[in-house]
Amino acid sequence: MGAFLDKPRTEKHNLHAEGNGVRYGLSSMQGWRVEMEDAHTAVLGLPAPGMADWSFFAVYDGHAGSRVANYCAKHLLEHIMGASLGQAGPDAPASDSAAPAAPTVETVKAGIRTGFLKIDEHMRSFSDLRNGMDRSGSTAVGILLSPEHFFFINCGDSRAVLYRNSHVGFSTLDHKPCNPRERERIQNAGGSVMIQRVNGSLAVSRALGDFDYKCVDGKGPTEQLVSPEPEVFEVVRAPEHDQFVVLACDGIWDVMSNEELCEFVKSRLEVSDDLETVCNEVVDTCLHKGSRDNMSVVLVCLPNGPKVSEEAVRKDAELNKYLESRVEEMLSRAGEDGFPDLVAVMRNLSTDIGMPSLPPGGGLASKRSVIEAVYNRLNPYREEDGSAAELEYHW
Rank of each mutant, 00 (worst) to 15 (best):
F57G: 01
G191E: 00
K321F: 10
K219C: 14
L247M: 01
S84L: 04
Y393E: 03
M51N: 01
A39V: 00
A39S: 11
E276Y: 12
E18Q: 06
G362K: 14
D61N: 11
P230L: 15
S125Y: 13
N304Q: 08
L129E: 01
H167K: 15
R197G: 15
S201P: 02
G142D: 03
P221E: 06
L349G: 00
C301S: 13
R333Q: 05
V141P: 05
D128L: 13
G354A: 08
S158Q: 09
H288T: 02
G19W: 08
E35S: 14
V168F: 02
D352I: 06
G363L: 05
P303D: 02
P177I: 09
S158G: 01
A92G: 09
D134M: 12
C178E: 12
S95C: 01
A69T: 01
V108G: 11
D128P: 09
S84G: 05
M81Q: 05
V43G: 04
L76C: 00
K266P: 07
M81I: 08
A373C: 03
F57S: 02
K266R: 13
T104G: 12
V141S: 11
L302F: 15
I186F: 13
P228Y: 00
C249G: 10
F339W: 15
P360A: 03
V22Y: 08
R23T: 02
A189Y: 08
Y213H: 08
K307W: 09
G86S: 05
S205D: 04
S158E: 04
T41F: 12
G363R: 15
F56S: 01
S55Y: 09
S369G: 00
G50M: 01
V34M: 15
K315L: 14
F150L: 07
N165H: 11
D316T: 03
S205T: 06
K367Q: 12
D174P: 07
E390N: 14
D242V: 08
I112G: 03
V298R: 10
A207W: 15
R292L: 09
N376K: 10
T107K: 14
W253M: 07
P100I: 06
Y393Q: 07
P100M: 04
L44V: 02
Y163E: 03
H149E: 07
G290L: 00
F339V: 01
S125C: 10
D217W: 11
P180V: 12
G65E: 07
C249T: 14
M36D: 03
T277Q: 04
I153L: 09
V161H: 06
A160S: 11
G209V: 03
V22K: 00
V232H: 13
G363P: 07
E392N: 11
L44D: 02
F151P: 13
A88E: 06
L77M: 13
V282Y: 03
A73P: 10
A69G: 01
S201H: 04
D91K: 10
R181P: 05
V345W: 12
V198G: 03
